[in-house]
């Protein structure tokens, strides 16, 4: 049997932490918990888990919340991977934590099974997009207005294929369903999603920089 993934929970609500722990405890190994930015940095550095489940809104630090924690480890080239977890719908929260280096974003209404799958995916280095994050991406890259990238390495717009994948995810398709619908392999879907994540982190599109700037994290 494969060793269980080691996970650190970062959330300022004790109630939520204990609930998540109870739900995930069987499938994953919870190696640490933290409730503030400072605690999170210490605990993650000490435990060096596979994945950190990171709340976007966290007290402490310089007010940057979860994005601040992720940024510390991203800048240090740490192998620890972050999955953002939030109740917030606000674009600037989502975008700032993704741009700080998180590999995915899910909302707290996610079911335990889906969350475990998402954590596994992030641990393998893939990206996890909720339907809502896919919607943000389509909005931010102007997909509805017909903005299509001509080359794969163009950072400021999505390729036609990436848009198709994002649209299907926004429509509530699982990765497997996306693969079936587009006649491609799940691995290819994951590649497209990772490419979009990279663009989301590196693009200079005005909407993204503005959303990120709201949290003074540029």
């Amino acid at each position: 049997m494969e060793p269980k993934l080691r996970v650190v929970l970062v959330d300022d609500h004790t109630l939520f932490r204990s609930g998540t722990k109870a739900e995930l405890g069987g499938a994953l190994e919870i190696v640490g918990e933290a409730g503030t930015v400072e605690d999170a940095i210490t605990v993650v550095a000490a435990a060096s888990p596979d994945v950190v489940l990171l709340d976007v809104h966290l007290p402490g630090g310089h007010g940057g919340g979860g994005a601040e924690v992720a940024r510390v480890f991203t800048e240090a080239d740490s192998p620890v991977k972050f999955l953002a977890l939030s109740v917030s719908d606000a674009a600037n929260d989502v975008v700032s934590v993704i741009r700080a280096g998180a590999r995915g974003y899910v909302t707290k209404t996610i079911t335990a099974a889906e969350l475990i799958e998402a954590i596994g995916r992030v641990a393998e280095g893939d990206a996890v997009f909720s339907p809502r994050l896919a919607g943000f991406v389509l909005d931010a890259f102007g997909a509805a207005a017909g903005n299509v990238a001509m080359a794969d390495d163009e950072l400021d717009s999505l390729t036609a294929r990436e848009q198709e994948v994002m649209r299907l995810i926004a429509r509530g398709y699982t990765y497997r369903e996306v693969a079936t619908e587009l006649f491609i392999s799940i691995k290819t879907v994951e590649t497209h999603v990772s490419a979009v994540l990279r663009k989301l982190q590196l693009s200079n599109r005005a909407e993204l920089t503005r959303w990120a700037a709201r949290r003074n994290l540029l």
Partner: peptide, 19 residues
């Protein structure tokens, strides 16, 4: 469940998907 609603409103056209 889950029921998903995705709407894309482009200039001159709107698409809605309910799954």
């Amino acid at each position: 469940p889950p029921v998903s609603l995705y709407a894309e409103i482009a200039p001159g056209r709107a698409e809605v998907f309910v799954k």
